[in-house]
Design a protein around this nucleic acid. Sequence first.
RNA 1: GCGUCGGUGGCAGAGUGGUCAAUUGCAACAGGCUGUAAACCUGUCGGGCAUAGCCCUACGAAGGUUCGAAUCCUUCUCGGCGCA
Length: 440
Amino acid sequence: MGAINFKIEQRAPGCRARAGVIETPHGAIHTPAFAPVGTKASVKGILPEQLVALGAEVVLANTYHLYLQPGEEIVKNAGGLAKFMNWKGSPRGASAEWGPTMTDSGGFQVFSLGAAFNKTISKFTRDDVKDFVSPSSDDGLTKSKHGLAVFDEEVASQHGQLAIIDDEGVSFTSHLDGSLHRFTPERSVEIQHALGADIFFAFDECTSPTEPYEYQREAMERTHRWAERSLKTHRQNINANKKQALFGIVQGGRHEDLRRESAREISRLGFDGIGIGGSFSKEDMRGALAAAVAELPEELPRHFLGIGEPGDILEGIANGMDLFDCVAATRLGRHGSIYTKHGLIHLKNEKYHSDFTPLSECRDFVNPSSDDGFTKSITSGFTRAYMSHLLRSGEMLGATIASMHNLKFILDLVAGAREAILDGNFDEYREDFVREYYSK
RNA sequence: GCGUCGGUGGCAGAGUGGUCAAUUGCAACAGGCUGUAAACCUGUCGGGCAUAGCCCUACGAAGGUUCGAAUCCUUCUCGGCGCA
């Protein structure tokens, strides 16, 4: 018996979608569920109580960031991540004083700050990107006899940023002060034990989609070896083992055969759940996801890492994914864009300067009944013109309201999907949403 | 009234004879953002066209010097400061 218990309540006919409940030591997560991202133990601009009001049941923080600042010992001594950030969770699923949390392993940062640093590569990539240089061919790096890049401090200091992957782990420089650090699967697990989240992830290597097949395989196999080492370290800690669930991460780039192989291997190892990782081009996501899911055991919860946009989330749910996390809702909001039922709009555009439509018009397609007084005041009380003013004038409140609006939009979308699955009409729900959202 | 310093594109403010349709910041206009180095980044920003270029109109106004002026000279005008 692991730290969490996952129960599937209902499956959708005609696709892989399912609704269920994950019981964690700190309360229940009703799936499909979206976890707002609080990288540094803070969902930017939003209070924990507000997250609860918006319908969030779990938040996800980041190992890399909390390790560098304030350091995992501080979080541990504070009483763990949830207590440290005063996250009490939703009353709906509460079974403890503090709420459910997750931590990402830091593997993605190695990718985004190292291999992809200063390249036009991110979680999602356009197909026309060709200037990517692979980590093993980056200028200034030397190769070991095994063909792996060797960390060169001199080069690192010249670059300012660098992350070098070898079979043992990853050496990287801090983005805060340039200091040299090293993560191994063992170390990542150890840090995440200290952080104390209910669900945490094995340290993986996220590759760029522009890497050749051979490198994708090499990285995937390395991720598998790291997965085994992560599990071993986790199992040796009896105390953590009872309280925290470890998810393994499927990689394999855009290649369906690698995705299937990775899914089989990660499933075989005995994790408490599965994460689907990777950096995709838009076109490759669907195939890679479907290939991986086909090989996953039904009974384990599945997390689609870093996803996403409304359409991608629904795609994930249809493919049997249970958990999602994404920075887009808060980042887009903070930058002045909000989701509407007809797609994304930029509130700073001239046309919203004197548009007195309330924000509620943007999201009345799902679950209006879920709105309590607090949410109503957010979405009905503020107009686009007011938001335009706040965002243009740089008022913090603008970023906060837009972030809350977007989180509510996504949380409602996912909650609506859950209801639809339970009611047996998920396909219709998804089609209706996608038709309107992508109509332009 | 005398003296002095100054008037540059929406604003602030560089530029003191050609490399200036004019640095830079802000504003404006648009785009981007998917396990957050992100309250961030990118592009446009006098007008026109057959738009890697060309042509107009432009650095308070009018004249002048010069092959060439935002830059030098004269007058006018407006503003800051000082003295009466």
